[in-house]
């Protein structure tokens, strides 16, 4: 296509060839598949369902996560960490969200380096994140933040015990981003489950995925996942609070509405305890309330618009 006329200024740049910049590096792909394999082996569907029937934190799995670097990932190597950055942490938490891995993962990851044993997976750390809820208080060895007057509630998510606590100051943007990564993973799983069911479930003599009414639900599921993915990965690269706020809003939407649509595609089975869909939705609901919910993120972006920043 090159070489007929014009284009002096762009030719030099154009011939530089395809550089793939905003894509996963080979190392990042390897990290992601490593975490995915670990979680498939240690927390597959059977383990998930077993955890639902016998709530509580699997300490052996927690230590294994520690050994795999789940908590020490962003600590410098000189401090015994892995020395990687936010993009890698986001990929790891996305996989955790896809597997519906339970436990105060974000709190313990953020405590690594500050709370002894957190980085290694020996100490389980729970934290009040600025919103009005505290996850996993009873199972934790260390509870950060104001939890004196914590009141237990009967959690809608069988895999996330909750206490009500006083809402406090501004949440940590990194906690918000890692939560968004978990939501992205859950949204991805919701899309996969919906598509799998739509391909195999037969009605009226054909797979229900051949009907546009079902097909279009699946297409919207994927669109929400892909838009959220771009936002979450970009926020991991820039670490900009406004980008993180945007990532959170899109990831919450992708996970919550994705799980709802996945439930709808499953029909009557989607309403059962036996199908996994409700576990996706309930976890997505819990995460969407972290750090006080999405309203503050919307207000932050609105303020940003007025100030003209982020252009």
């Amino acid at each position: 296509m090159t070489g007929h006329v014009g284009g002096r200024a762009v030719r030099a740049a154009g011939e530089r060839g395809g550089d793939v910049r905003f894509q996963l590096t080979d190392d990042q792909r390897a990290l992601r598949s490593g975490v995915r394999e670990l979680l498939a082996r240690r927390f597959g569907r059977e383990a998930l369902r077993a955890a639902v029937e016998r709530p509580g934190l699997d300490r052996a799995l927690w230590r294994e996560l520690g050994t795999a670097g789940f908590f020490a990932l962003r600590l410098p190597e000189t401090a015994g960490g892995v020395g990687l950055g936010l993009p890698e942490a986001v990929l790891m938490f996305e996989e955790a969200g896809r597997a519906l891995l339970p436990g105060p993962l974000v709190a313990t990851h953020l405590a690594a380096g500050n709370v002894p044993g957190a980085a290694e997976g020996e100490t389980v750390v729970a934290a009040a994140d600025g919103g009005g809820l505290l996850e996993w208080r009873a199972a934790a060895d260390v509870v950060l933040g104001d939890a004196v007057d914590a009141v237990p509630l009967r959690s809608v998510d069988p895999l996330t015990p909750l206490h009500r606590v006083p809402a406090s100051d501004t949440p940590d943007p990194v906690a918000v981003l890692l939560t968004a990564a978990e939501q992205l993973g859950t949204a991805t799983r919701a899309c996969e489950l919906a598509v799998q069911h739509a391909r195999t479930r037969q009605q009226f003599g054909q797979p229900i995925g051949a009907f546009q009414a079902v097909k279009h639900l699946c297409a919207e599921l994927l669109a929400r996942v892909e838009v959220a993915r771009a936002a979450v990965y970009a926020a991991a690269v820039t670490a900009d609070p406004a980008d993180i706020a945007a990532a959170r809003l899109l990831a919450d939407d992708a996970a919550v509405r994705g799980a709802r649509d996945c439930l709808q595609v499953h029909g009557g089975m989607g309403f059962t305890w036996e199908a996994d869909v409700h576990l996706l939705l309930k976890r997505a609901w819990v995460r969407a309330r972290r750090a006080g919910g999405g309203a503050e993120s919307e207000e932050l972006l609105a303020r940003e618009l007025l100030s003209g920043a982020g252009r």
């Binding site: 838009v227 771009a230 706020a245 972006l301």
Partner: peptide, 26 residues
């Protein structure tokens, strides 16, 4: 305000998705 904030999130994400797709097309 929240409607505007949410729209800003959407357009930020669409810009990132464009960058993602363009990187992929490279």
């Amino acid at each position: 305000r929240r409607r505007l904030g949410l729209l800003d999130a959407e357009f930020r994400a669409l810009w990132r998705l464009t960058q993602w797709n363009v990187s992929e097309a490279s």
